[in-house]
Design a protein around this nucleic acid. Structure first.
Lengths: 230, 230
DNA sequence: GGTCGTATATCCTGCACCGAATATACGGAT
DNA sequence: ATCCGTATATTCGGTGCAGGATATACGACC
């Protein structure tokens, strides 16, 4: 039998989870949600922008997870709609949270993508770039530590900043790993460095086939665009 | 003066970078790109699906980074278009790679989002969920190590799997951190655990204001949806 | 008392993305 | 001989998302 409406995809934007969590505290209107998220620095862990916020609020409402409570108008300012969480929303929030904590999610960090294609850069350049990354990671770590010390000094419990401790730990781990890789390239202890160099000799192209284990180094000139795109 | 065309946003999908990297090796058609990425397991680091692949190929072409070379038809199979990289594409690829390696990018891991909202779950439940995550992370690590050993045994140089070493290191770091947090919750050494418990006593809601440092525990019943969504 | 920047509050629009559909070829099983 | 699962190859439709436009209020400054 045919479905009456096109089945709505489950909401995946973590900002929606933040909305549910905020409405779990008390009813509020979208702009206030954004202000609170900024004030508590949750926007460092959850990407926030107004366009997405109003979109997910709408989605949550259509799904029955939240309901508009009242619509106020203050003078001639735009109307603002206050929302409250429903029982279904409460259940969804808990389920979602449980899932996120229990199951490590497959994600695609940009740096990992770059690493997987690093062969397209000559090894000496890669090495220099990694060195620069090291400097930036160090600076970032210093910044994070300062912020956390300030927060601690202001008496904010660790419980409310646990996500920054996580970010700190992950950044430290990345720094250590990048340092080790950089070291291996500069000292030449990384296996097959000679191969990598060969790929980037004057005009060289490479094609490595992991099935056969064969590496094919060719001389091909890049194509030239002879027409402008229309 | 008005722009003739709406300025095209720069391409951000890392899959486009992978396309450039593949065409840097040799010209090929989109389906072949996908096959190669799968064969080399780059799809573990770069999200690949056909819809996006054909989209980014089109975008790259419009931007002048790649050009269609020839269109073959094999029997009655769908036509396939072979693309080649242009000089502009080569330059763009290098610049993009440089950026990704040099500059740590702000990303938003789902787990960090969940951590930042962890207060909405009662501490005992959070503890159990973290324990489950630990188990899953361990299993995932074992799996990754197996895959890497197989690859090493098959004679694939580390250079071509550097991204898995990164993923391994990051996962190990996360495991260590989660273990430590779990320990702190179960032993009670995490400060303000009592506060966290109090938030979740029968019917409680919490509102913590980091500006004033005040925590407000209220008794509010959740709203009930009295209407079905239309 | 005008004006300029910032805060309050939401909406609109265009693109990117992804799931799923389409169509044919081919090799092995029954 | 034919059936059917998998490989080859691309297209399309619908949605989520983000950038920026819109509109008013308010305080500071000259």
């Amino acid at each position: 039998m045919p479905r009456a409406t096109t089945r709505q995809r489950p909401i995946t934007n973590p900002l929606a989870l933040a909305v549910l969590a905020l409405l779990f505290e008390r009813p509020m209107h979208p702009y206030e949600m954004a202000s609170l998220l900024r004030e508590r620095q949750k926007d460092a862990s959850i990407k926030l922008n107004y366009g997405s916020l109003y979109t997910v609020v709408d989605q949550l409402q259509r799904a029955g997870y939240i309901v508009p409570q009242e619509t106020n108008r203050d003078g001639r300012r735009p109307e603002r709609t206050t929302y409250a969480i429903t029982d279904a929303g409460l259940a969804r929030m808990r389920e979602w949270m449980r899932d996120l904590i229990r199951k490590p999610a497959k994600e695609y960090p940009q740096f990992e993508a770059a690493l997987s294609l690093m062969g397209v850069l000559p090894p000496d350049e890669a090495s220099d770039l990694l060195a620069e990354r090291i400097t930036r990671l160090e600076a970032h770590l210093t910044g994070m530590r300062d912020v956390m010390e300030d927060a601690a000094a202001a008496g904010i419990p660790r419980l409310f900043m646990i996500e920054s401790e996580y970010e700190l730990a992950m950044t430290e781990a990345e720094l250590a790993w990048v340092r080790a890789l950089h070291e291996e390239i500069t000292t030449g202890s990384l296996p097959n460095l000679d191969l990598w160099h060969a790929f980037h000799e004057e005009g060289a192209r490479y094609a490595y086939d992991p099935r056969t284990g064969l590496t094919d180094v060719r001389q091909i000139k890049p194509a030239t665009a002879d027409k402008e795109a229309p």
